[in-house]
Each structure stands twice: as structure tokens, then as C-alpha cells.
Amino acid sequence: MPETTATVEKRKKRYGMVIDLRKCAGCSACTVACSIENNVPEGHFRTWVKEMEVGLFPDVKRIKLPRLCNHCEDPPCVKVCPVQASWQNEDGVVLIDQDRCIGCKYCIAACPYEARFINPETNTADKCSFCIHRLEVGQLPACVTTCVGGARIFGDVNDPESEISKVLSQYSVNVLKPDLGTQPFVFYIDGDGSLMAGDYSGLRLDHTIRLAPGGK
């Protein structure tokens, strides 16, 4: 069980996700399922799978790191939204009121995880919602149901009987950029060190891939 704060314990439910990196095959089925489920416009992603090569030859390992909104307990994006269009519901899910958002992009600048983007169809900020519309009818998020290796485990962290609670009590987990104090609720099994913190060691070695706008 990860360290929780008073606000988390006060919640009746606290949704979270565990991603088991040992089981992720990097097939990107989650990305596809998410894009279909949420009508995500082309070129933008609510969830995606980063692929990295870690180590030096011959001690090299390929890592697939699925990424999505971390639904932080202390979300920087909610703090900066001038019209309170970004908000956190009672279950800890960070959501965007699409009718209220004016598209100032401050939340995008403030998110340390680059989880947000401007949806060119609605002209508002957009991001992963843990498929809130599915949760409301008792279904799991689309990426969880579609995950081939069963790498994504979703549930109520505050319910000790839930699968996610059992996994969290069984394994040591990490979160992305824990030093920022945002308290993410997307946990990674087998994600350590340079994978979880921002790693910029390749910047001056020209190891980086240059990404053209549009993700080509």
C-alpha cells in the first residue's frame, strides 16, 4: 500500500491504476482502445506507450512505459485553472469540464507529465479521464479491459478487498517524478530510477530522437 495522505483516506473511493511493466509487451492496444473509446483526434493521445532502451550494450533492456494522466492527489493542473474547469471528483479522478474550459493552456504548461493536450475538435484541454463514463456504469477503463498482458490493474485503492489494493500490498511500486509531491495514483511495478524521474542524460549526447510536430 503506498503512502496515503489524509485527503485520500477521507475519500470513500480512490481510483487508481497499477501498471505492471513486466507484463507490458508494448503492443499499444491500450492507445488504440482509448482513442476509439474517447474519440481522441488524430495525432493526440490520452494514453501512449513510450519505448526506451536502457543500459549499455551488452547489458541492454527494452522498456515499454505506458503513460496516461496520473490523476494526482495534489494536481498542479487543477490549481492553475483560472475558471475551475479542471477539477477533481470525489473519487480522486481529475476531470475537465469541457463546457467551461476556455483553452488558456495553463494546465498544459503546468502538468509535469505532459498528460494534457488541446483537442482540436472541441478547442479545449483534454486528457485521460479514467474513462469516467465507463466507471459510472460499473465498467473498467477501455485500456484496462483491452490490455493483452493484463498489465493494467484498475480499482479502488481505499477498498482493501479490491484487486489493486492486493497488488499494491504485494509489490513495491513507484510513481513518476515522486519528488514533485503531486502524489500520482498511477503506480508502476518494476519501474525504477531513471525511468520514473525525468532523465535528461542523453540531451547533450545527441541520443535523443527529434520529434516533429504531429508526432511523425
Partner: peptide
Amino acid sequence: GIGPYIPVHYLYNVHHE
């Protein structure tokens, strides 16, 4: 193993504006 100070070489990531 994958320690904290091992170089990470990005192969694929998505673009953020």
C-alpha cells in the same frame, strides 16, 4: 540490472506541443 543511473535511450515517444 536497471539501476537508477543507467542511460536511457528513447526509441518512441509521442509529440507534445
